[in-house]
Nucleic acid binder design. Structure first.
Lengths: 211, 211
DNA sequence: CCCGGAGCTTGACAGTTGTCAAGATAAAAA
DNA sequence: TTTTTATCTTGACAACTGTCAAGCTCCGGG
């Protein structure tokens, strides 16, 4: 009887886990749909109904899977994180010279700025929201740290390929590149055609001086 | 008759100007009141009624002086600009040595971060909004340029006092300091006591290497 | 003195919002 | 099969939003 009971408990636990997985998978599906609308309209102008209307789901589903709006947005932020903190890692892993790393980084930078502008403006929007809404802070600070680490991996590898060491702290390097990217993004969204090439020039000039 | 007419026209024009001044003065009064609430709640959560309730005015007055909500926020942004783009100029003007400039800059930086955190998070919020709302872009880009120039004045003076020249472009320097400040602000708002001292350390270390 | 209009208040409007509950449907369990 | 449970739809609710119009107050010019 003990065995049967244990077996039953185990099976129930497995069922539970499977159900949880399915539940979480659905949450991520919904979060992904929500990110579309959020990237289009920004946090301030996005309502649950708008999200639902721009997706294949009804607004009730979102309430079924998320306790409230903040819960949904938090899930969006966390899911976004997973997608972006390894963006440049392939370049870092495959580059065998400073030039190769530079060009790979610049190419990825330009591509990101142009094809994922909406997702990135949302990131800057949510990071600003975190200054007002405490519920976002933990996740946002974590993403920031991950991005800082990502930049640091690039800088370290770049320095290593020139037998040097990065000349600044991770925080300063991240601030620099993030600031440049943010500014370029705003100009790019304002239809400034010079934004992308100027960012690339700036980064190309900067890399040898900071690493 | 010609003289009388001219006189009358002139006087009417003067009256018109005075009225315009009064009108604009009131707009700025209202914008200043609005900035309080905006700094407290952020753009996304701030409604005209909330602004009115947190001020000495009724919500109707805002509609009397502003064509719509965007008009009000734009006026807020422009007014904010005037207050912040000369923040460090006195330090630049009075400092007679690198150390003096450094310490003056750091002191002002710390004071700003601590006592005007709300106003600054609003700035970052609105700059993010500009990525979504075209109506904000012109003013935001102008403020950004003015801030870049402000940082450049500090860096130039710092370099001058050491008989050097700034080692980076205005854009890169602004990106760097703005990025550091933004990150420190978020941490400070998240009750991280180390945010301010770490920012100061970082800037103190960085100044001699970039100028 | 009064009277016109600038400045302001009040209340109403239509539309939107987050939230939720009651019921439908489909899938799983018995 | 029947029953139960998870999933989803629909419609409703109250609160809130930007906007505006009708009317009030009060001051300056006539």
């Amino acid at each position: 009887m003990a065995r049967r009971a244990t077996g039953a408990v185990k099976r129930e636990a497995v069922v539970e886990v499977v159900r949880d997985d399915k539940f979480n998978a659905r949450r991520i599906e919904l979060a992904e749909a929500a990110l579309e609308t959020l990237g289009e309209l920004g946090f301030a102008r996005t309502s649950l109904r708008e999200i639902a209307q721009n997706s294949a789901f009804t607004h009730g589903v979102f309430h079924y899977y998320f306790s409230d709006k903040l819960d949904l947005i938090c899930c969006c932020v966390r899911h976004y994180k997973a997608k972006c903190v390894t963006r440049y890692d392939e370049v870092v892993a495959t580059a065998t010279s400073r030039d190769e790393l530079t060009e790979g980084f610049l190419a990825k930078l330009a591509a990101t700025l142009q094809s994922e502008a909406r997702m990135h403006r949302l990131w800057y929007d949510l990071r600003s929201q975190a200054m007002f809404e405490a519920a976002f802070r933990k996740d946002v600070l974590e993403i920031d740290k991950s991005l800082e680490a990502m930049i640091w991996r690039i800088a370290s590898r770049y320095a290593e390929l020139g037998n040097k060491r990065p000349a600044s702290s991770p925080a300063a390097l991240y601030a620099l590149f993030d600031g440049l990217f943010q500014s370029a993004l705003l100009k790019h969204l304002a239809d400034d055609r010079t934004a992308v090439p100027e960012l690339l020039d700036e980064v190309r000039r900067l890399l040898p001086t900071v690493c």
